[in-house]
């Protein structure tokens, strides 16, 4: 029946197993590919994976982790990535200072989150469906703003050192994007585990009635999470577009699946069964290295996509099999 009723001895051993599930899976992926592909476990390749695939995915997945922790799924993270990038590039192209452009980009993310918050907290629409609607509207907004979905390139004259710094800068030899991942994951990790607000978010996500009866402003918490999620995702959009000096329409959609996968893989394969930052990061790394490894051993892009889908389904099965169905 329920997990609470499982005999202590059994639940502990199962818990221990799950605690090591994700690191073990990552180790397995690393071991298999380093055996199959000679170039896999080199400094250059690992750094490449971390910078090119893991960093931005991790930022978006962290946004998703917040949403999952509060009991929802944010399908509009990709939209926030796109709108953030669009606003940023549009401002840069118009000759605005980069700092102001970053501000505009973040504003676009906040706006996306605010729109979700309105639907979720004011109208009481479930987060999944609300963010689905936002996904539609965001898609159309991009088309409207770009004459039907044309990329926007920053004119050569406008590529300033500040822009290059955001896109390609590094500190102590570590790229800016990875620093940001470090900063955000520390922040969100501490928020979820150590702070009052973190407890409140988890309480709302896992047992909303008890949260309400304990005096929490449930709707306000959901609204705040939506806004935070949109803002963080927009940050990824700014980094992405600064990196390529362009805004590419719908580029953010690619992050949606991976972020859902990473957040849920991290949730499922954890001892506690709740959304957590280390789990999400391990999940992102797992996806990144698996895709890279498959590429190196010669699988094409389409098989990678299938592999990711299978991995997600396997994770879900692992996470829910044997558990009593809730609600």
């Amino acid at each position: 029946m329920s997990r609470a009723q499982a005999r202590p001895s059994r639940s502990i051993s199962a818990a221990e197993l799950l605690r090591f599930g994700l690191p073990a899976m990552l180790a397995l992926v690393l071991a298999v590919f380093s055996a199959l592909a000679p170039g896999f476990l080199t400094v250059a390749n690992v750094t490449g994976v971390l910078v090119n695939s893991v960093a931005l995915n991790a930022i978006v997945a962290l946004a998703m982790t917040l949403a999952v922790a509060s009991g929802g799924t944010d399908l509009s993270v990709g939209t926030a990535v796109d709108l953030g990038g669009l606003a940023f590039i549009a401002a840069v192209s118009a000759g605005q200072p980069v700092a102001l452009a970053v501000f505009f980009g973040l504003l676009a993310g906040i706006g996306t989150g605010l729109f979700n918050a309105l639907l979720i907290a004011r109208l009481g629409v479930t987060p999944f469906l609300a963010t689905l609607g936002t996904l539609f509207i965001g898609h159309s907004l991009q088309q409207l703003a770009t004459d039907g979905g044309n990329p926007v390139y920053v004119p050569a004259g406008r590529i300033t050192p500040a822009l290059a710094l955001i896109g390609h800068g590094s500190c102590l030899g570590i790229p800016l994007s990875l620093w940001l991942v470090l900063l955000l994951s520390t922040g969100i990790g501490l928020l979820l585990t150590r702070t009052r607000f973190g407890r409140e978010v988890l309480a709302v996500g896992i047992q909303a009635p008890a949260a309400l009866y304990s005096g929490l402003p449930v709707r306000r918490i959901l609204a705040l999470i939506s806004i935070a999620s949109g803002t963080i995702a927009a940050l990824a959009g700014i980094l992405l577009s600064a990196h390529v000096n362009a805004y590419v329409p719908y580029a953010g959609n690619a992050y949606l699946l991976d972020s859902i996968g990473a957040a849920f893989i991290g949730t499922a394969l954890s001892r506690t069964g709740r959304a957590n930052v280390p789990g999400t990061l391990l999940g992102v790394a797992l996806f990144g290295f698996m895709t890279n490894g498959l590429l190196l051993i010669g699988w094409n892009f389409y098989w990678q996509q299938v592999g990711t889908g299978v991995l997600i389904l396997l994770t879900l099965i692992l996470a829910f099999a044997g558990r009593e169905r809730v609600g």
Binding site: A203, I206, A210, Y213, S214, R274
Partner: peptide, 8 residues
């Protein structure tokens, strides 16, 4: 009142 064991 109570939360399930999934919260810390």
């Amino acid at each position: 009142t109570f939360f399930p064991a999934t919260v810390p």
